[in-house]
C-alpha cells in the first residue's frame, strides 16, 4: 500500500512538470505578499477598495470590465462597499438604455444591476483610439496571463528606458516584463498620482498592488468562499476516509487476508 501511494504521488507530480516548465519565463517577477494566497487566503478589503479607485481613475479610461456589475462591489467576498456606496458609484455613471416609447436610446444614471460601463462602444473603436492596439478587457485578465498576479504587478512597475540599440516606434514603450518587451500602453502610474480615499500613500508600488488585488477579485469573485469551502470539504473527506479505512479493516478481518 505504501508503494502504491508513493507511485501515485510521483505520478501526480509528473503531471505538473510539463505545465509549470511550459510557462517558464526568462524574467523573475517582482514579489509581494498576496493576502489571498494559501489555504485560508482572503482579500484585503482596503486594498480592494483602493484598487477599485485606481481602476476607475486610471485604467477605466481605456480598459473595459464588461463582465462585472456595480452590484458586485457590494457583494460578500469583494470590496464590500456598502449597498448605499455601491448605489452612489453606479449612479455616477451614465448608462445607455432603451429604446424608449419613441424608439430612441437614452442615457440614465447607472443602477446596481448594470454592467460596468465600457470606455469604448466596441473593439474597433477601442483600436482606433489606441493606435491599433486593443486595451484588453480586464474582467479575467489575471487568469488570462501565464504569470497571473505577479506578472500584472511587475508589468505595472516594469517601465524602463530601452536598452541601447533598441529602436521603438511611436506609441511603443519598453517594459521589462512584457512578452517581447514592447508594450503599447505607456507608463500610467506615478507616485502620488491619485489621492486615496483612505489616505494611504499612493506610491507606484502601492497602486500596483491594490489594482492587481482588485483584478484578482474581478477574475475570481468567489475566491474566498472557494477557499473556505475547500478547507471544509478536505477536512470532511479526511474524516470520512479514516472512518472508511477502519470499517474496511474491520470487514476484511473476517477473512485472513490482509488488505
Amino acid at each position: 500500500m505504501k508503494n502504491f501511494f508513493g507511485i501515485l504521488f510521483l505520478l501526480s507530480l509528473l503531471i505538473g512538470i510539463p505545465i509549470s516548465s511550459n510557462s517558464a519565463e526568462k524574467v523573475e517577477y517582482l514579489k509581494t505578499d498576496w493576502s489571498f494566497k494559501g489555504l485560508f487566503g482572503k482579500f484585503d478589503r482596503g486594498s480592494l477598495q483602493r484598487g477599485y479607485q485606481v481602476y476607475t481613475e486610471v485604467c477605466s479610461s481605456c480598459h473595459s470590465m464588461k463582465y462585472l456589475s456595480y452590484r458586485n462591489l457590494a457583494e460578500k467576498g469583494g470590496p464590500e462597499f456598502t449597498t448605499q456606496q455601491a448605489k452612489t458609484i453606479a449612479a455616477s455613471f451614465e448608462v445607455v438604455d432603451g429604446p424608449n416609447a419613441d424608439g430612441e436610446m437614452f442615457t440614465r444614471p447607472g443602477k446596481l444591476s448594470d454592467k460596468f460601463v465600457m470606455p469604448y462602444e466596441n473593439v474597433k473603436a477601442a483600436q482606433a483610439a489606441n493606435g491599433g492596439a486593443y486595451p484588453p478587457d480586464m474582467s479575467v485578465l489575471v487568469k488570462a496571463r501565464a504569470g497571473g498576479v505577479d506578472y500584472i504587478y511587475s508589468l505595472l512597475q516594469g517601465y524602463e528606458d530601452p536598452p541601447a540599440g533598441m529602436n521603438l516606434d511611436d506609441g511603443v514603450y519598453y517594459n521589462k516584463y512584457m512578452y517581447g518587451n514592447k508594450i503599447k500602453m505607456s507608463n500610467q502610474l506615478s507616485d502620488g498620482l491619485i489621492e486615496y480615499a483612505d489616505g494611504t500613500n499612493s506610491t507606484v508600488e502601492q497602486m500596483s498592488k491594490d489594482v492587481t488585488t482588485f483584478l484578482m477579485w474581478a477574475a475570481e469573485p468567489h475566491l474566498e468562499s472557494r477557499h473556505q469551502m475547500g478547507f471544509k470539504a478536505i477536512i470532511y473527506l479526511i474524516i470520512l476516509t479514516i472512518l472508511v479505512y477502519f470499517s474496511m479493516k474491520r470487514i476484511w478481518s473476517r477473512i485472513e487476508t490482509k488488505v
Binding site: F5, S12, H227, M229, G230, A233, I234, L237, T241, V244
Partner: peptide, 17 residues
Amino acid sequence: GFALLMFMIVFAFFVFY
C-alpha cells in the same frame, strides 16, 4: 470506496486550491 476517497482528496485540492 476507501481508494475513491483518497482520490477525491486529490481532486478536491485541485478544484478548490
